[in-house]
Design a protein around this nucleic acid. Sequence first.
DNA 1: CCATCTTTGTGCACGCGTTCACAAAGACAT
DNA 2: ATGTCTTTGTGAACGCGTGCACAAAGATGG
Lengths: 264, 264
Amino acid sequence: MATGRTHRPATRSRGIPEATVARLPLYLRALTALSERSVPTVSSEELAAAAGVNSAKLRKDFSYLGSYGTRGVGYDVEYLVYQISRELGLTQDWPVVIVGIGNLGAALANYGGFASRGFRVAALIDADPGMAGKPVAGIPVQHTDELEKIIQDDGVSIGVIATPAGAAQQVCDRLVAAGVTSILNFAPTVLNVPEGVDVRKVDLSIELQILAFHEQRKAGEEAAADAVAPPAVARKQPHVGPSADSTGSADKGPDGDVPAVMPA
Amino acid sequence: MATGRTHRPATRSRGIPEATVARLPLYLRALTALSERSVPTVSSEELAAAAGVNSAKLRKDFSYLGSYGTRGVGYDVEYLVYQISRELGLTQDWPVVIVGIGNLGAALANYGGFASRGFRVAALIDADPGMAGKPVAGIPVQHTDELEKIIQDDGVSIGVIATPAGAAQQVCDRLVAAGVTSILNFAPTVLNVPEGVDVRKVDLSIELQILAFHEQRKAGEEAAADAVAPPAVARKQPHVGPSADSTGSADKGPDGDVPAVMPA
DNA sequence: CCATCTTTGTGCACGCGTTCACAAAGACAT
DNA sequence: ATGTCTTTGTGAACGCGTGCACAAAGATGG
């Protein structure tokens, strides 16, 4: 799903399948909402509905954490919030650096979800000297030269890359060399990292392409079954030659995928 | 993965497993790069390395598309680019609407990856009347009232939600009612959609929490003897970072004396 | 204290995805 | 043509994740 490397020595140590870990934040969000409404307990059925998953799956997920429920009653909301937070490591403070303060980087810096869950923006870093000192989301942007110093001084172990694709690997290397061991990559590139470093990637382009695939499939099925066109009329524009159009050569940027503004 | 609805017999119709579909954009990106360098053919081993996957997996993935390789030689780059593009539906033009033009929405509008692969920003939509007419990425923002009209006029079938969480479900309902059948959701909420609508979500907060989990596990690999006594009063500030100092192998680590921050 | 009812926790089976390993297919040299 | 060498395409085994179905556990009421 998301680790850039195919490797997964990951969750070998103590139970908790990767798929379960990926769902814990979902449960936590639903539980936090319940907590704010002062709901004392919740059944697996209710919570599963709120999180958008199967109730059996939810119970099995929780069983990896331990037996935190009460049969006949359900789960204590507050207690479960604490247990999941602890399991996810959110009871600690995680300083995070964001590299590449373009449109996307600025959006991330302003994203409220950071501060609300144990994550703290330790620094914003950009390669453009003109950005230095300029405040974004109340935090002054610092130049790339400061990167290593910041990471070491603040003990940063999580880095967010929001640079253009061309700069991503280089930034990644510097982050890792300075001590970062977890990277969230928004640049459309496959990052190469040494053993022991986790990479998760968020790729808008890929998500859209997956949607397009399903969309095309849906359109094709309808066409095969019936001729009744639902709402739209001009939805298709088959305007591509056998192999000359989109593939030719540099008809757009390096890959056309540039998430942020950052001079190389 | 990402389909909002629990049920998803998914790609039953025409082979092609979901996991393979999710990798096709990755291959396509690597192939495009090769194409720009005028590389005529590529072996499964080389291409797999470029895409960051196993070569056997790549070959099996391609086998679902058909036999496009030549034994003893490899794959024709141009031909494969075309085949994958066609399979993903990228030879069509996909108009996309972005709803919620805040920091993130603006970043998405400026994202080059849209236009480069058959996706076209048909409209930017925001609920704030003050935003109306204001150009973002060269496109004037339109008010939410126009949403249905735009979707129907342009035959939009893909919508991107970049609104706050509170507005996401409402926006989603309107998109679906107007004819959108694929949604990319950036809001931290579980969207409820009817059968036949695909939802993929991109959630920064969840990604970070998953990274935090692994980070914590790495930090406390040897000091696994915590076995925290269940706190009777939940949501209390627990003692924090008790593991960063005991191990000698861990060179990094947030010098464990940061204050605990519980989610609110 | 016993009966009943609710809800958890989990054993089990099934299907998907990954990986191995190798035969088949073609290129290429002689 | 024939042999050798490279690389694909895939059969088969394995492991993980999912969901069913049910027994165990505890609450609740009489």
